[in-house]
Design a binder for these strands. Structure first.
Ligand SMILES: [Mn+2]
Ligand SMILES: [Mn+2]
Ligand SMILES: [Mn+2]
Ligand SMILES: [Mn+2]
Lengths: 216, 216
DNA sequence: CTTCCATATTAGGTACACCTAACTCTAGGT
DNA sequence: ACCTAGAGTTAGGTGTACCTAATATGGAAG
């Protein structure tokens, strides 16, 4: 059951993430996300289908139970690695992604458990995403985008769908991090910016940025 | 200067270790150490020579300055990983080798420095081997094998040249770990066992085991 | 109904890192 | 002097994971 290559893990992880908003995942979106050519992905998808890790129909690819379970294991390792980097080694949240993307393929089940225990079984990564437990159970919180809120609505930031370090740095500089309360002051029409209030300060946020911040 | 594959790193690391006791390293010993066929090693050695990482003469291979410097970087990452595993995650010294052998290829210079700092810049790995500093400076302590001691000689264990988990477990069970003082009670002739005294107990040690324990 | 575009695949090729089988070469033993 | 063991290389081949160029294919727009 084990013994997959880093690349196989990378594909499964990407598919799992992409199928959150596009159910059967198209190979072109997958290629784009993995930064690979369409034929490379096409070929690899065929191999993964042969190994029983996904099914491939005209609509796109869907992970099998086995594929999903490996994907969640990789995501668990990624997020636990991120926590180790921030909580133990003092990384900032904008520095952890690439490092964790390599570590996730190098750590064993044993190490995965040890990290989790040492950190007191954290429930989320530094960006607020839930860490699947060791049996692959992933609690999905009911969240919406900050961009969906109306003037005078409030929300508590749960997570941030963003990996770009510059964007993460920017968000952190405004205090837009998990567990912080945000109040919407004003929403400009025609997809314009939102004025939000965070820990006493007011900022104008682009809709694109706001859509990546999930609140409850 | 960076951007080597895990395999290249593995070769350089092995060559560096082997050239401690056999100066120009023969490709056959290298193949044996890496558990690869002789032709595979022969081929790879040619590539590494082309990249300027080693020179290849009739006597064997010798690392160039660049090859040595990469090798020491990998060894530094390996030993720092081992320390992270034991000191932060609670691994025993017999559990760390394989894990560290994967981690050493996944961690960045940044992470390397952060681990070192977080642990207070440790000077040795859990087995007592020195950790090269970030500029590749490696302090070599003047040690000899426990097996070279005569009856009534004493020594303090510096390091243990052993990776096999069962052997390491055995040594730890007798208290044969770095910084411990050992006294030789008796040396049986014809390469027979040595009777040693460690923290109040006496044990009979095979010569093979004793030769792997370095003392000062 | 045709044209065109996005999506996907096929065809053919590369780099990397491994393998076995077969060959060469050299130093020692008899 | 001759034979042989060990060390090393050459030759030929495999699997993985990527690439570009060319080729289908299924709608939307004209
Ligand atoms: Mn990854
Ligand atoms: Mn994260
Ligand atoms: Mn390694
Ligand atoms: Mn060690």
């Amino acid at each position: 059951m084990e013994a997959d290559t880093p690349r196989v893990e990378e594909y499964l992880e990407s598919i799992y993430k992409l199928q959150q908003d596009q159910y059967p995942v198209s190979t072109s979106r997958l290629a784009e996300h993995l930064k690979l050519s369409a034929p490379s992905v096409s070929e690899m998808v065929k191999k993964l289908a042969n190994r029983g890790l996904l099914s491939h129909t005209e609509k796109g690819v869907c992970l099998t139970e086995e594929g999903k379970s490996i994907a969640k294991k990789v995501i668990r390792r990624h997020r636990l690695s991120e926590r180790l980097l921030t909580d133990v080694l003092g990384y900032r949240w904008d520095e952890v992604h690439d490092e964790a993307c390599r570590l996730e393929h190098a750590i064993s089940s044993e190490m995965e458990e040890r990290i989790s225990e040492s950190l007191g079984n954290p429930r989320t990564c530094p960006h607020g995403h839930p860490i699947p437990d060791k049996d692959g159970v992933l609690v999905k919180e009911n969240v919406k985008s900050l961009s969906e809120l109306k003037a005078s609505d409030r929300g508590i930031i749960v997570s941030v769908f963003e990996e770009d370090p510059r964007m993460l740095k920017y968000m952190a500089s405004l205090g837009l991090i998990p567990d912080v309360c945000v109040r919407v002051e004003e929403v400009a029409p025609f997809g314009g910016p939102m004025i939000v209030c965070v820990s006493g300060s007011r900022y104008a946020l682009g809709r694109e940025v706001a859509s990546r911040i999930k609140v409850k």
